[in-house]
Amino acid sequence: MNVRTIGCVELNSVAWGMHVADEMIKAASVELVMARPTCPGRYIVVITGDTGAVQSAVEVGRALASDMAVDWFTIPSVHMDVFPALSGTSILPKINALGVIETCTTASCILAADAAAKSADVQLIEIRMAAGLGGKAFVTMTGDVGSVKAAVEAGIEGVGEAGPVHSHVVMPSPSEELKGHLL
């Protein structure tokens, strides 16, 4: 898959989420990346394609979802680390400093991850989406301490009005035991 622009609509209904996913795909020439339930009874739809098509499909999804929409976005030129982090397939040679940003929606977490990855020399480890988290999500990243601090701050700013950010932390030297439980 050649990922260029991604778009997302997060809903607070599984049934409406499936319907919105179907209509978004039918509305424009986009490819479905992810359509699945998350906690607590939410549903996330992620699509990719050319910027105009993705924007159009997200607008269709938002309009159809109406008050069921929890959050949404369109990200042109998404950072290449976002998809391995979403799928839990990031390959890391070494974990140095550890940064964590915890958000109140999955969509805002993806925004934070993309902004963080674009801002500094860090590698995304994982974007954990809402499963067992009460609807929240978090992104973990690694790099040198200065880069991780800069990336976390940029990630927080990258959420913008989509937020809120629930919490964040930078650990300069996480224990080897914790590192073994990150993925």
Score class of each variant (00 low, 15 high):
residue 1 M to F: 05
residue 3 V to Q: 10
residue 4 R to N: 14
residue 9 V to K: 11
residue 21 A to E: 12
residue 26 K to T: 12
residue 26 K to H: 13
residue 29 S to Q: 13
residue 32 L to E: 12
residue 32 L to F: 06
residue 34 M to A: 13
residue 36 R to A: 14
residue 38 T to M: 12
residue 41 G to F: 03
residue 43 Y to F: 15
residue 45 V to I: 14
residue 46 V to Y: 04
residue 50 D to M: 11
residue 51 T to W: 05
residue 52 G to I: 07
residue 53 A to L: 05
residue 56 S to D: 07
residue 60 V to H: 09
residue 61 G to L: 09
residue 61 G to Y: 04
residue 65 A to F: 03
residue 69 A to Q: 10
residue 69 A to Y: 01
residue 71 D to I: 07
residue 72 W to I: 02
residue 77 S to N: 12
residue 77 S to Y: 08
residue 77 S to M: 08
residue 78 V to N: 02
residue 80 M to Y: 08
residue 81 D to A: 10
residue 83 F to C: 01
residue 85 A to H: 00
residue 91 I to G: 00
residue 91 I to H: 01
residue 95 I to E: 00
residue 96 N to G: 15
residue 97 A to T: 01
residue 98 L to P: 00
residue 98 L to I: 00
residue 101 I to P: 03
residue 102 E to N: 13
residue 103 T to P: 10
residue 105 T to F: 04
residue 106 T to S: 15
residue 107 A to M: 10
residue 109 C to S: 15
residue 111 L to Q: 14
residue 121 D to C: 06
residue 124 L to T: 00
residue 126 E to L: 10
residue 132 G to I: 03
residue 138 F to K: 09
residue 143 G to Y: 00
residue 146 G to R: 14
residue 154 A to I: 11
residue 154 A to L: 14
residue 157 E to N: 15
residue 158 G to W: 04
residue 161 E to T: 13
residue 163 G to P: 01
residue 171 M to I: 15
residue 173 S to E: 14
residue 179 K to G: 00
residue 180 G to E: 00
residue 181 H to Y: 09
